[in-house]
Design a protein around this nucleic acid. Structure first.
Length: 282
DNA sequence: AAGGTTTCCAACCGCAGACAG
DNA sequence: CCTGTCTGCGGTTGGAAACCT
């Protein structure tokens, strides 16, 4: 048995709201409050479904809404919040535990696997709605990330790059596959003059790899170049990465280039500094 | 000026969780 | 515990507005 529709849609109006409808809904909610959205349209004299009324109220009519474009700092904050609050919806178990290590959100962007919590992000922006932030992400921020080339890698290419560089944050890491990955990782390590595998920390990266890791896959550098903003310097500092310098921290180097610069932990470290009131996973 | 293309955002849809009976 | 209802959320879409040729 399929789920019943939220309301009887026969005879109900759809599409853009008129001024008259807005007035009716606003007056009703202000005078009566919100008891049951399903009953609102009937009581307010509207030919809309309750769901539509709720959406209209929350996203457009609710008092205190802040209209207008997002500032650079708001945009940066959205990116930060997205990296913290996003990507969790579909990876946690029913008991709240997480099967995989929280992965870098930009890595997920490249695979079109974004599961954000827009309402939580919106809660950090008084007067902004989740829908507004979601729209901004999809139309502006996502596009900027695409311009950075972060969506250009096909899954195959990502897999290939993981073989080349290793991937600490692999999403399907069971014990056998991690052994496999470890082998791949070791195999992929550069060799010194004597043919010995060396720690990448000490190894000179191949020229083509330098370009990939240092420039193409450095989202912060690219984002700054694109936006002409230095707002993200704090993030680089938190990762021990300075402009034009590649992070080379033990164990951190052998992750995907993107991960190494924007690890989940990097946001954790700055949490108190920027968002002291955060409650993770709520 | 006209037609085509792109951008943007309000609104819709379907799913999932919470909750009441 | 099961079932149905309601609400909230995230992804997607349609069309108006802006921009380009």
């Amino acid at each position: 048995m399929g789920r019943q529709p939220c309301c009887d849609k026969v005879g109900l109006k759809r599409g853009p709201w008129t001024i008259e409808e807005d007035h009716k809904l606003t007056n009703f909610v202000l005078n009566n409050g919100i008891i049951c959205w399903r009953k609102v349209p009937k009581l307010a004299g509207l030919l809309r479904c309750g769901k539509s009324c709720r959406l209209r109220w929350i996203n457009y009519l609710r008092p205190g809404l802040k209209r207008g474009s997002f500032t650079d700092s708001e945009e940066n904050q959205i990116i930060q919040l997205h990296s913290r609050l996003g990507n969790r919806r579909n990876i946690s178990n029913t008991d709240g535990s997480i099967d995989i290590e929280p992965v870098n959100y930009l890595f997920l962007v490249t695979q079109e696997r974004i599961f954000s919590r827009w309402s939580k992000i919106a809660s950090h922006f008084p007067g902004r709605t989740d829908n507004e932030i979601k729209n901004h992400w999809n139309t502006r921020i996502k596009k900027k990330l695409k311009q950075l080339g972060l969506d250009s890698q096909k899954p195959f290419e990502i897999e290939k790059s993981q073989k080349n560089y290793g991937n600490k944050n692999n999403m399907n890491s069971d014990s056998s596959s991690s052994n496999k990955q470890e082998a791949i990782r070791l195999e992929s390590r550069p060799e010194d003059d004597h043919g010995m595998k060396v720690c990448p920390k000490k190894a000179e990266k191949p020229e083509e790899m330098k370009a990939t890791v240092d420039e193409t896959n450095d989202p912060l550098n690219n984002y700054q170049m694109l936006c002409g903003s230095s707002d993200l310097d704090w993030l680089k500092e938190s990762n021990n990465v300075s402009m034009g310098e590649t992070a080379c921290v033990e164990e951190e180097y052998w992750v995907d280039g993107v991960d190494s610069f924007l690890s989940w932990d990097s946001f954790v470290h700055v949490e108190d500094k920027f968002f002291p009131s955060w409650e993770i996973g709520n």
